[in-house]
């Protein structure tokens, strides 16, 4: 693992870059290192996929599909607006 970490990043660094990438493009050198790292390292490759999946789920997150009873809350909101005037 030693040589690989020196040339192609540690997993800790690779995982960091995977997240950093979603904010701004990586410098070309690091981009190549990351690409090569994930070609060789099964764990980081899985990490990358799951990280992307989580991003998608975090964005699309929809609460419980079941309707929630909101009659009380609606009454409360309408009363709050009454008081507000």
């Amino acid at each position: 693992m030693g040589l690989m970490h020196t040339l192609l990043l540690s997993c800790r660094k690779a995982a960091e870059l995977i997240e950093q990438q979603s904010f701004a493009p990586l410098p070309p050198g690091q981009k190549v290192q990351l690409w090569m790292h994930t070609r060789i390292c099964a764990g980081c490759k899985v990490f990358q996929h799951q990280n992307e999946l989580m991003d998608r789920l975090l964005e699309q997150r929809v609460a419980e599909p079941l309707p929630i009873p909101t009659t009380q809350l609606e009454k409360r909101i309408i009363a709050a607006i009454d008081n507000h005037n």
Binding site: M1, S10, R12, K13, Q50
Partner: peptide, 11 residues
């Protein structure tokens, strides 16, 4: 060493 710790390797 900066590798994934045992038990935490992504699968």
């Amino acid at each position: 060493d900066g590798g994934w710790a045992p038990g935490h390797i992504p699968q």
